[in-house]
């Protein structure tokens, strides 16, 4: 050690460096498990599901109207366009994507999630800042440019910023750990318990959450697009194609088909 070097006490390693690393790790694990407990699936309103399904029905109706005999065709056409409460005659309030992200359900779920991840981290960060403020816990074994100072030495306020950048403060050590553990968590928690459990419980709900947002997007352009839809439906003529199957059938040489 040259005379310029700071001497780091071994006890700092034993009582600050290692404990902070361990506690941060354990906190991360706890937060992950807590997140699984607290997370609620996003609520999807049934009218939204219905709307999405009706839209898909409308698409199928336009595409495959030929399978319907005239009376069935007429009753479905009526469902879409006839009368004030027909599907395509409903007026919808204009919605925007911001609206769907601002919905109370979505906000609440976002809030709990961010509360869970940030609040404990901030509290613990404040604790470290308070307890170990000004500690220099380790030294990076390679030279670093001056700009890293703000990243590695938060919490150390020296009048003259002339401490070598390679020294790491306690608070910075904690923050480095916080982000550095992400990959480790992924390794440690990748038992079927964690990944599969959350998948099977949430994949459906997240999928339906997505579909909710998609129908919202459809609603955004609703008033513009229904005019177009109505026009296409008006042009749609009923042409039942089932009876023509008889002629088709008579063309089939059954014996040849059967032998194949």
């Amino acid at each position: 050690m040259t005379g310029d070097d700071l001497h780091l006490d071994v006890r700092i390693r034993d009582w600050v460096l290692i404990p902070v690393a361990i506690v941060t790790f354990c906190m991360g694990i706890m937060l992950q498990s807590l997140g699984i407990l607290v997370r609620r699936p996003l609520k999807i309103h049934q009218h939204k599901i219905r709307e999405g399904a009706t839209l898909s029905r409308l698409g199928q109706f336009k595409r495959n109207a030929g399978v319907l005999p005239p009376d069935q065709f007429a009753s479905r056409l009526a469902f879409f366009v006839e009368g004030d409460d027909a599907f395509l005659n409903q007026q919808k309030a204009q919605k925007s994507l911001i609206n769907s992200f601002m919905s109370p359900d979505f906000m609440a779920s976002q809030l709990t999630e961010s509360m869970l991840s940030f609040l404990p981290q901030m509290v613990f960060g404040a604790f470290i800042r308070y307890t170990f403020g000004g500690f220099t816990v380790c030294k990076v074994p390679f030279p670093l440019p001056q700009r890293f100072g703000s990243m590695l030495q938060s919490g150390i306020e020296l009048a003259s910023r002339d401490l070598d950048v390679t020294y790491v403060s306690a608070l910075s050590w904690y923050i480095l750990n916080l982000f550095g553990y992400q990959g480790v968590y992924r390794l440690v928690l990748s038992s079927p318990n964690m990944t599969a459990g959350t998948q099977s419980a949430n994949s459906r709900s997240s999928a339906s959450a997505l579909s909710g947002i998609i129908t919202d997007q459809v609603e955004m352009g609703w008033n513009q697009s229904i005019q177009g839809e109505k026009a296409t439906l008006k042009k749609l003529i009923c042409k039942w194609d089932v009876p023509s199957a008889e002629d088709e059938l008579l063309q089939i040489k059954f014996k040849e088909v059967y032998k194949q």
Partner: peptide, 16 residues
């Protein structure tokens, strides 16, 4: 008659 239509359609799709 409609039944005949439908049976024929069914047979064109799967005659075997």
């Amino acid at each position: 008659l409609t039944a005949r239509h439908y049976y024929s359609k069914s047979l064109t799709l799967n005659s075997k």
